[in-house]
Each structure stands twice: as structure tokens, then as C-alpha cells.
Design a protein around this nucleic acid. Structure first.
Lengths: 409, 409
DNA sequence: TTTATTTATTTCACGCTCTGAAAAAAATGT
DNA sequence: ACATTTTTTTCAGAGCGTGAAATAAATAAA
């Protein structure tokens, strides 16, 4: 309301805005006729006609010349327009512990090819690491051949902290190097825009496309597993810090002077809710001693024990849930209640966490006015992250590159 | 980046945007020549000429016909344009405990008249309360006579919770009634748009105008006194909840199962940092018992005692600061570090709070990466609130009413 | 098979925007 | 009185969306 930086508007801005409007309608609603686009966007038939014919010429759109979907209607049949898959493609890169996964998605949003590289990233030098990813992208492009258009964007996700501009990895628990300027290095090598984002931020972009009624203006995505991460979507965009990717829910303090966290401080949410925290609590270890990250098998053992009624294991899950619940309560105290999506390996035991979670939430909740805690648990976080990376990249491609009017034409 | 709802753009949008741009330049930079406006906005001389001549005709702008500020320059002298004070006026209403204060500000931003009504708001019925404020606005308008233009907007602030749309007071500690729909009632009586906002939200709007270099994109305003409130400015606009005014920093949990708060829950920041919390701690009272709000004299007594080295009093201030420090650390964990402005009666003892504040902040801080805690203490909160109300109202008047092109013309 | 009807899309005149260049205005210097 | 300098206005030009009319492409009816 107060201080958005307004910029000068020219006539071009109108066209760019309306081009983006039409692209978004097609991306969200799939192939549509010009008439349908007119209804969705509110633009006049004349405007739709002008804009789409330009985009057809540019090779951005495709006209469904063949059959008409709506047969035997009375008048002239609608001709459906769709995004041209060959207009370009984006590559989504997900950096995980010891494995880099890649997917290539065409302009229409279809996943074409994928690959992965197993690497000991924690032991790699910055240069080698960057080269490895670059080579993997190159191979994937090679493999795709002519199944998709030319590379248009690369989008990278990583667990950890990226910079606010989406250019660098500042720090990641899965990497040894710091301050890795992926964007500059890759955009030089591939000649296309490159962004880096936190994996939880990528998940929020995905949720928006997967379940728009629920995840619309404001919502949060929480990843529980090796650590605890959060992506926050606020007023139509992922919240990103001015200097870094912000949203360090896992390292928000839960209890002053509380349990020891990997980060060296005490009482972080993560020190109660991450794998290692649950494990050490269930094992009755000193919560002021750090433990090595437990394996999936070890966590399964703890889970079994809890399900068999072991008090200490149950308490570990309860306290983990409680830390998250208090954290959510504190978040809601600051930005109001928002729907939450949980993912990650830690959500396998969501039923064990839930009691503590609701308990902690209730205790830290401000007012009964504030509405209920609305959350759901989503399975495969990797699929979410990829979806978010791809849709984010395509969306930026639409608005920044394709909707934008070329200076020379 | 992801999902801003784009709307259809027409040619009118361009004009409206550029009109708003020029109005903002004049409001921020004071009277300026057309040339200067061109440099600030980036618009061509032709565009500036067209827009300003329309606004002069409409009576929005005023031309400084008399002397030229920059004498004896070589060429044709610049003619300064300014906002026409008589274009309209706004009334800012600040609802405080037992006193309602009003200021009338002309379109150019000058405070014209002010008044106040002493009322026992806590004992008033909804209808009587609304009528009392309305009458006060009426009297103020009467008193102003022709010193300002016609009433264009009313902006009301209140301590407590307003709705997200800025129409109702949902709950306030200084009022008995709930769900007071001021906007509808007043806009019917006065025939102008009316907004209601939380007092801390108003302060953020003020900070933006008072010290733009420091308070630009993101910052927080914290009011310490009878209670603890916060206004959060995020990406160019005050953060407001979807259903209510959100940002309940004072009732964000500090310690699970902690001290008893006025709100009935335990461990809220306010239960450590508000007047009554400091008082009861310094007096060695049970922190699980609520106490009546201490008077200014009683608080001064506690302050004296602390300054004389009384351990218990010092601890009260230290713990109050600590609660705020932890709260800030948690806020920063979620949205990244932002500059903070403190106001309110509680800041008289900022020196006593500061040690605990920095201590708590350090303990809850995530990384040394995250930058230092930058804050300042500002004196008179009422002045800030009024400034915020007035500038907010004028800004909305500019963008929503004056920049907007009339349908019939 | 031909004609009427219906619906989708395109075309065109119009009014609006900003821009760039040229013209006009208003001061000072010579 | 004329040249110079700077500000402001004017005007042609290109681009945009709109609304109305024209065109296209199908089915239903004759």
C-alpha cells in the first residue's frame, strides 16, 4: 500500500502485460481457444487475435489445426491454441546429498528426459563441483536431441542458504565449498539465465501449481528429515531475504538454552525435530551432545519402538512435534495463519508427531480468533522440488523473456 | 516471482501509473519543476507536460507563478509545481486509552488543525463510541473552515486487532465493544473512504517517509509500553493478515509454559516485556499472577530502583530485553534481518533493556552471516502514528482517487 | 444441394498513450 | 537590440486495446 517502487509505464508495458496474461492462462488452463482466452483474461477478441497471431508467428504458440475438440456445435468451431513444446526447454537441477538429479522439461511443461550423477559433493572442490553439474546438464541436452527446443533456462535447487538474488549458493550442509556463484558460471557456459534457490522455496512454487485453491496467496512448506527447512510463500511470491534466502525455520529458537543444534547454537527447532534429534532423544542420549546423522534403518528402528509403545521413543516424537508446533505458532503470530504442507522423510511418522505438534501449536497460539491449523502431508519431496524448479523456470521464461517485447524486431 | 495475479492492462493504466508516479515524486521531493520531474520519473518532457497540465486543470497541482527559486540562471526559468493544499484534506484519528486524538492534514501534507476528546471508551457501547468519534471529526472539519479543501479520507488507528481489509476493529484492549465496523459507518456518514489500521502498522508507514534510506523495503516497528506491538513492513507494504491485522509480536511465545500473559496464555513476549510484566518481576511477584497495569509513577519507581543497582529490578529489565531479543531473533530467522525502530513509553529505559536484548538476540541468532542487529529508539510514538496515518491516507488518495482516470470526463 | 443460422475470428476506424524532434517561450549576456 | 541558453509546449508518428462490422467456418433447415 505504501511504498511500492512504481516505474515509468509506456505503451509497451501494456502489450507485455497482456502477453504474459495469455501465456499464464495457457500454462494454467492448458490448450484453449481464443474465445476462452478472452473470457479468462477479460481482453477483447481483437486484442486476443492480435497478440496470439504475433505469438504464432514467433513460434511461441501452436494452433491445433486438426480436429476440433468440441464437435458438432452450431457455429464456427473454436481453434485451440497451445504452448509450443519446441519453443525452448528448461533444465532443473536438484542437488542432494551425494547425488545430483536433473530433469529436462519442454516449454509446454512436459518432462522429456532425466538423469543423475552420484558424487561425493562434500569432498569436491568448488571448480570440480561446478564442472560436474555443467557436464551433466550438457549430457542431458545431448541425450534429449531434438525432442525439445533449445535450452532457455537452468534452475538449481540446493538444501541450505542461497543468496537473495538467486545467483549463488552461500552455504549448504551437503557441500564443502562456500559462495559458489553457479549463476554466473553456468550462464557463461550455456548462454542462458540461471537461478539458484533453496529446495523449500522450490517446493512452494510447486504447491502453487499443484493445488492452487489451497496454496494461493500465502502458505508454508516444511521439509522434515536430515534437517528442518521451510519455504514461505507470501502475497504471490516466495519470501526471499535481501542478502540470503532467509526463512531459517529449522534454526529458529524453540527453547532458550535448549538442546544443542548442529549449527552450534542451543534450542533451535531442528535440535528437536530433525532425524538426529529424534534419534538421540529416543536413545536417551544427552541432548547437549551432537550425534552422527542416523541412517534410514536406524530411524525405522526408533519408529518401530515408538509404535510398540516405548515411552522414550514416543516422547522423542512428541517433543519433535511440539517444537514444530511452537514454531508454527510463532510464525502465525507474525504473519497470521497460513496453510502448511509437510514433506520429507520425517513425515513418515507424521502420526507420531501430530499430537505434540497440535499441542505445541495450541500453547503458542495467540487467540481463538486465529483459526485452526490447516496442514497436509505430501509424499515425495523430490518430485515437488522438481515441479517447483521447472514451473518457476518456465514462469520466469514466460514473463521475463517471451512476454517482453524485443527492442529490435 | 511465481503467482502475482496479473490483470488486464489498457492504455489507461499507463496514464494512471504515470500520474501516480508524478504525484509521488512531488509528495516525496516537494515542489519541483517539470524538468526535475522528468529526471526523477524518467518520463519525456512531452509526457510530463501533458500530465501536469491536466492536473493543473483539475486543481490537483499548483503552479508557482510568482518568483522563480533559481534566480539569474541563463535560460528560461523553471516553474515549480506543487501539490494544491486545497485539493482536499484527510483526517487522522488515533484511538488511545480514554482519549481520542484527531488531526486534519491538507493535501499538501501540512497539519492544519487538531483536537481531542477524552472518553471512557472502555465503558462505552459500540454505537455511542462511533458517534463520539464521528462528532469529533465533524467538529474538526467545522473548525478548519476554509483553511483546507473538502474532506477526502479518514484514517483511524487503534491499539489491537483490525481486520485484514482495514474496515473493522476486531478487538482492542482499550475498547469494550468488538467487531466495530468503523469504515462502513463513517464512509456512510461522511461520504469518503475510511480505513482502520493497527497503530504499529501506522508507524511503519511513517518511518518510510521520515527516514527512507534506513526504512525502505523491509523493516519493523516495535512499540513497548502497556503492551508490546509490532508493525512489519515487507517488500514495500505493511504486512497485513488475510483475516486480521496479523503481526502479534507481543503474543508470540517466548518460553513454553512461561510467565502468564494478559491474553491468558503462557510465555508470550509481552508477559516479560510489557509494563506490568516488568513491574511484577521487579516487585518479586509471582509471574503466574496477573497484576493491574502499573501507573507511570510506579514504573518510574522501578526504573529508579534499577538505576540504583537493585538486583531484582535490573533482572526485570534484563529479562524483558531478553524476551524481545529472542523474539527478534526468531523474526529474523523467518524473514531475514531487518532494521528495527523502537517506540513507546518502555523505550525510556532502553539502556536498561539493551543488554538483555542483545544477549537474547545473540542466543537465538542463526549465523554470524546474518549481520548485526540494527535498531534505533524513536521518541514520541503518537507523532509517528499520526504521520503514518496522514501519509498513508494521502498516499492512498493519490493512487486510488487522483491518479485514477475518471470514467466520465 | 442450397440457404439460413450460429459462433469464432479477423479487420478497421478511433481514441488514447508515450516518444522524439521541432517550435515557442522566457530569461540572461553581449 | 540581438544572440544564447534553458524550459516548456506542440506536433507527427507508432503502438495499444476497444467496439463494431466483416469474414470464416461450421451445422440445421429447406
Amino acid at each position: 500500500m505504501g511504498g511500492e517502487t512504481i516505474r515509468k509505464a509506456t505503451i509497451d508495458l501494456v502489450r507485455e502485460n497482456n502477453r504474459a496474461l495469455i501465456l499464464r492462462a495457457l500454462r494454467r488452463g492448458g490448450a484453449q481457444s481464443r474465445t476462452a482466452l478472452g473470457q479468462v483474461t477479460g481482453l477483447s477478441p481483437a486484442a486476443i487475435s492480435g497478440i496470439t497471431s504475433a505469438m504464432l508467428d514467433e513460434g511461441v504458440l501452436l494452433q491445433a489445426d486438426g480436429e476440433s475438440g468440441t464437435a458438432k456445435a452450431r457455429g464456427r468451431p473454436q481453434v485451440k491454441l497451445s504452448l509450443n513444446p519446441l519453443r525452448g526447454c528448461v533444465v532443473a537441477v536438484m542437488i542432494a546429498v551425494n547425488r545430483i538429479r536433473l530433469k529436462l522439461v519442454d516449454y509446454a511443461g512436459k518432462e522429456c528426459t532425466e538423469s543423475h550423477v552420484d558424487v561425493a559433493a562434500l569432498e569436491m572442490q568448488r571448480g570440480e563441483f561446478i564442472r560436474t553439474i555443467g557436464d551433466a546438464v550438457f549430457s542431458l541436452l545431448d541425450e534429449t536431441l531434438n525432442a525439445a527446443g533449445p535450452l532457455s533456462r537452468i534452475e538449481v535447487s540446493v538444501q541450505g542458504i542461497t543468496d537473495g538474488a538467486g545467483e549463488k549458493i552461500l552455504w549448504s550442509p551437503v557441500l564443502r565449498a562456500r559462495e559458489i556463484d553457479l549463476a554466473r558460471r553456468f550462464s557463461r557456459r550455456f548462454g542462458v539465465p540461471v537461478s539458484v534457490m533453496n529446495d523449500c522455496a522450490a517446493m512452494t512454487e510447486a504447491l502453487q501449481w499443484i493445488d492452487p485453491p489451497r496454496y494461493r496467496e500465502r502458505f508454508a512448506a516444511i521439509l522434515i528429515g536430515y534437517g528442518v527447512g521451510m519455504g514461505l510463500f507470501l502475497d504471490g511470491a516466495p519470501l526471499v531475504g535481501l542478502r540470503d534466502s532467509a526463512v531459517e525455520f529449522g534454526h529458529m529458537n524453540h527453547v532458550p538454552e535448549g538442546a544443542l543444534c548442529r549449527c552450534g547454537r542451543r534450542g533451535c527447532v531442528e535440535a528437536y525435530a530433525a532425524d538426529y534429534a529424534i534419534w538421540r532423544r529416543a536413545k536417551g542420549k544427552d541432548d547437549q551432545k551432537l550425534v552422527a546423522p542416523p541412517s534410514a534403518e536406524e530411524m525405522a528402528l526408533i519408529e518401530d519402538r515408538a509404535r510398540q509403545g516405548n515411552e522414550q521413543a514416543l516422547a522423542a516424537y512428541r517433543e519433535a512435534g511440539c517444537a514444530i508446533g511452537f514454531g508454527l505458532g510463532r510464525l502465525f503470530a507474525l504473519i497470521g495463519p497460513v496453510p502448511v504442507a509437510f514433506t520429507g522423510s520425517g513425515t513418515r511418522t507424521m502420526d507420531l508427531l501430530e499430537e505434540g505438534l497440535r499441542d505445541g501449536f495450541e500453547q503458542s497460539l495467540v487467540e481463538d480468533l486465529r483459526g485452526e491449523l490447516v496442514f497436509e502431508t505430501l509424499g515425495d519431496e523430490a518430485a515437488l522440488v522438481f515441479k517447483g524448479l521447472a514451473m518457476g523456470a518456465l514462469n520466469r521464461l514466460d514473463t521475463e523473456d517471451i512476454a517482453a517485447l524485443q527492442v529490435s524486431s
